[in-house]
Nucleic acid binder design. Sequence first.
DNA 1: AAGTGGTCTAGACCACGTC
DNA 2: ACGTGGTCTAGACCACTTT
Lengths: 237, 237
Amino acid sequence: MTQTGKALRSSKTWQSLYAEVSKRISEGLWKPGDFIPGEVELAREFGCARATVNRALRQLAEEGYLDRRRKAGTRVALHPVRKATLDISITRLEVEQRGAAYSHAVLSRKHNKAPRHIREIMGETKTKPLYLATLHQADNAPFVYETRWVNTEAVPDILSADLSQISVNEWLVENALFTTGRITFSAANASDVEADILKVKPGAALFIVERITWNGLNAVTVVRLAYAPKFEMSTEI
Amino acid sequence: MTQTGKALRSSKTWQSLYAEVSKRISEGLWKPGDFIPGEVELAREFGCARATVNRALRQLAEEGYLDRRRKAGTRVALHPVRKATLDISITRLEVEQRGAAYSHAVLSRKHNKAPRHIREIMGETKTKPLYLATLHQADNAPFVYETRWVNTEAVPDILSADLSQISVNEWLVENALFTTGRITFSAANASDVEADILKVKPGAALFIVERITWNGLNAVTVVRLAYAPKFEMSTEI
DNA sequence: AAGTGGTCTAGACCACGTC
DNA sequence: ACGTGGTCTAGACCACTTT
């Protein structure tokens, strides 16, 4: 009998501290901009170790509810920034998670000099980049039209991959790990070409995702995804 | 002189362990699907405490690179899911972060029975919901057109707030903390009304954000944001 | 049943940034 | 200069889940 009962024990988890601090903020006891007690004091109040307090407050700070700064202390965030986290997975999984059958077709494959706006992003490369236009389908209906430039200097192996079996996207995700990137979401009216490929009227509003992926200093790939109308991207916040 | 030099000491931070594990994965030493050594073994290898190993591996798991399960162990994720985190702040800050001057105008304010699709989300309420249509402007140009239903049963104070000074959005963000919600991104062609308000041609592609916010069991607010063309939402991944 | 990750503790040193 | 959060340690118990 070295421990107190389970019920009491649970009052010392970082989650319970998380809940208590959340409560005090939402009830207005601690208002936006207010400093809250330091870790040492909270540890005393809750009868737990400082590390436990730290774990709870760090979580709240990561989620945007608290602002923490050394020496200054911890305060309730003035404008609680909600973070919407979108899982960016490969298109095949995106389709399959919707309960549809996935297929894809490579519409065009070139090994050309890149247009200027792509060269500006990738820099001058010794080898010509690979261009691929792919239509991804869900239950044989157009799902997303992908156009992509791949820096063959950064990932030379791509040229020997069998891209009819595995999509470029998937190949890159599994072979170029730990890259950084920038992702941009926007809307655009379908061009005539896009309309034809996606089987919609020209001018239809398309959800556009553009992604640039870097491997250290090299841009690995620049991709543009034009989703068919009715596509939605959702997440819990 | 109780500590070793700074250089050596730094080889025991969780960040250095994070970097080392990342390196082993990206170099292919540990491939997707492979089990990696347990925490105890890694702690021994790196000469640090298990808690430090845990901190590093937890971070990698949160970011989608590792799959961790009790008893089973830790493995490299098969499909490293990249998480794009979007900061959802209030529109005023969104405009100001773009270096523009913010202003807004309430175009319509009603206190009506909600249409059916809104009632389905909010449920039957004793009090009538508040409807607000607001145009947010950046440097006096239309930026985003917001239409919103607010459940006055969940946040009765909203009726007495001065919404010409502070926007509804801002009021709610600061007064209804710790809510949950669902956010949906899509694209839509501008209707005649939207085109007129945003000063664009009917049919222009608009970036649409829809958000439903819950406070426990009650839907607090349902909002639709129609962004003017050229709007982009970006994030690092 | 047993092994792995999840968490807590008590104490310590450190780094950063404000004062 | 000094106070606060950031991190590390060594040991312990616990929870989950697979075997």
